Computed example of a mutant assay.
Amino acid sequence: MSATAKTIAYDTLASGILTLDLVPGADLDEARLCAEYGLSRTPMREVLRQLAGEGYVTLRQNRGAQVSEMSHTSLRAFFMAAPMVYSAILQLAATHRTASQLTALQTAQDVFCNALNGGTAADRALANIQFHRVTGDMADNPYLSPSFNRLLLDHARISMTFYRPGDPAQAENVDLARAQHDAIIAAITDRDAARAGAIAEDHWQLSRHQIEQFVMPGALDVPLGTAV
């Protein structure tokens, strides 16, 4: 039961952080979390350490855990690193992918398409991040993986902040994202690393404008990390 409770705690906290149910900078009360998930302090701290290692939370000495911040400084670094890392991941994915991973990627794309058709913004963000996580698994690079996973985390949180389903331009971008996911699958299936890398750069451009607005204080029209 303890292992199951730990898994539930990890999954729920990670999902809540990705979808902004737990906002950047929020304090996490260890005692309350223990009571909520039926865990003692030791396994709860193990969950928090795992989340900290993956960039979801920050562990502060004598002050407990906090949901990782999204400052303008860190997101400028995100903006610089993201296109390079995404491209490298997809090129390696095309080189190293396995048949079972291709099946997992297509399954993730099916879930993503279903989320686009009738899911919430949170469903869409979680399905999108799972699609890209599969490409990270395919890449199988211990140096890139931690950076890629942190990029996916903050990319999801930015998407939740700015996603407005009624915006015609964003609806068009969503349709293009779906088509680009299909193109990514095709390039990886063909083991065409150069094409996969080029598609990664095109895919990045879909959200580049919104991220530029997010990291430039003069362009902000919503508080940092506030879902709309």
Rank of each mutant, 00 (worst) to 15 (best):
R63K: 13
R63Y: 12
R63D: 08
G64R: 14
G64Q: 14
G64I: 15
A65E: 00
A65N: 06
Q66H: 08
V67Q: 05
V67I: 06
S68D: 02
S68G: 08
S68T: 11
E69Y: 02
M70C: 06
M70K: 04
H72Q: 15
T73F: 12
S74H: 03
L75N: 03
L75S: 02
R76C: 03
R76W: 07
A77H: 06
A77V: 12
F78C: 02
F79G: 07
M80L: 11
M80H: 00
M80R: 06
A82G: 05
P83Y: 06
M84K: 11
M84E: 12
Y86K: 15
S87E: 13
S87T: 12
A88R: 05
A88Q: 09
I89D: 04
L90H: 07
L90E: 05
T95I: 12
T95Y: 09
H96C: 09
H96P: 01
H96V: 10
T98G: 06
A99G: 12
A99S: 15
L102C: 01
L102N: 01
L102F: 01
T103M: 04
A104E: 10
L105R: 02
A108K: 01
A108H: 04
A108P: 00
Q109R: 06
V111Y: 00
C113W: 07
A115S: 11
A115H: 12
N117D: 15
T120F: 08
A121H: 03
A122S: 15
A122R: 08
A122L: 09
D123K: 09
D123H: 05
R124T: 02
A125T: 14
A125G: 08
L126P: 00
L126G: 01
R133S: 04
V134E: 03
V134G: 01
T135A: 04
T135P: 00
M138L: 02
A139D: 02
A139Y: 00
D140V: 08
D140W: 01
D140N: 08
D140S: 06
P142Q: 04
Y143F: 10
Y143M: 09
S145H: 12
S145G: 06
F148R: 10
F148W: 09
N149S: 06
N149D: 10
L152V: 03
A156N: 07
A156P: 00
R157T: 02
R157F: 01
M160V: 07
F162M: 08
Y163T: 15
R164S: 07
P165D: 03
E172C: 09
E172A: 13
N173G: 15
V174W: 09
D175F: 07
L176P: 00
L176N: 06
A179K: 13
D182A: 15
I184D: 04
I184S: 02
A187F: 12
T189G: 05
D190S: 15
R191L: 08
R191V: 07
D192W: 14
A196Y: 00
A198P: 00
A198D: 10
I199G: 02
I199V: 13
I199Q: 12
D202T: 08
W204G: 05
Q205P: 02
